[in-house]
């Protein structure tokens, strides 16, 4: 799903239940066989997940492009490989550009080529029908964990980017030198300000970035300023 989906508001009690399910995980199933969609729907609903089913890749893309507000929570895609109109591998290619959601491919036949192509293109797993429920649930759980971690990483990055934007030019210069291992005195000599002022900038920058220790600060500077 887009990196920052618009959060959906809880209005009714059923919204509340759905939000709870979504918090556990939202599973999007795409398959051209309605019976399979129903069966997977039963399974994931029973397991306490939110499950959305789509009968074709274009149907899924249409809904995706509407960018509907969503309840927060991890998400994964479960997609059949052989479908009319657009097959699973083609959908994977189209999604690859702007999509981080883990993709699990399922196939009716053990096509080794398809499996290799799909896995190379970044699919989380490739399952052969008929799929053992235990195995399916395990893969889905793994996919949701991956997505949850991904969402956390993205949130953290977004948060830090916002904090870094509040730094002044001077604070930034001081931080860069701190990360390089210079002492406060060296920095003061370097950019021709009082050592006390260096300490002040350093203090303020760490407060703005919300870090308490030097190693933490160094890691963020390494990651974002350089």
């Amino acid at each position: 799903m887009p990196d920052n989906p618009r959060p959906r508001q809880i209005v009714t009690t059923s919204d509340q239940a759905l939000a709870a399910r979504c918090a556990r995980g939202r599973i999007l199933v795409i398959d051209d066989d309605a019976e399979i969609l129903t069966a997977f729907g039963f399974l994931f609903t029973l397991e306490g997940y939110a499950c959305e089913t789509y009968s074709s890749a274009p149907a899924f893309l249409a809904v995706l492009h509407e960018n509907r507000p969503q309840f927060p929570g991890p998400c994964c895609l479960l997609c059949d490989v052989s479908m009319p109109e657009m097959d699973g591998l083609e959908l994977q290619r189209q999604l690859a550009q702007d999509e981080n959601t883990p993709l699990i491919l399922i196939s009716g036949s053990s096509g080794a080529e398809e499996a290799v192509t799909g896995l190379h293109a970044g699919a989380l797993d490739f399952l052969i029908k008929p799929i053992e429920t235990e195995a399916l649930l395990a893969v889905v759980a793994r996919a949701l964990a991956v997505d949850r971690q991904g969402q956390l990483d993205r949130m953290r990055r977004a948060n830090l980017t916002a904090r870094l934007a509040t730094l002044t030019e001077r604070e930034r210069a001081v931080l860069r030198r701190v990360a390089q291992g210079q002492t406060n005195y060296e920095i003061s000599q370097d950019i021709a300000i009082a050592e006390r002022t260096v300490k002040l900038y350093r203090q303020r920058a760490m407060e703005k970035l919300g870090v308490a220790t030097l190693p933490e600060l160094v890691r963020i500077v390494d990651e974002f300023i350089y």
Partner: peptide, 23 residues
């Protein structure tokens, strides 16, 4: 080959339904 593929679809549905019911 096509029969195998076609039959796998309903079998998948049966298996998933049965295992879901078991759960």
């Amino acid at each position: 080959a096509s029969l195998g593929h076609e039959l796998n679809q309903p079998l998948t549905a049966i298996l998933t339904n049965a295992q879901t019911a078991l759960r």
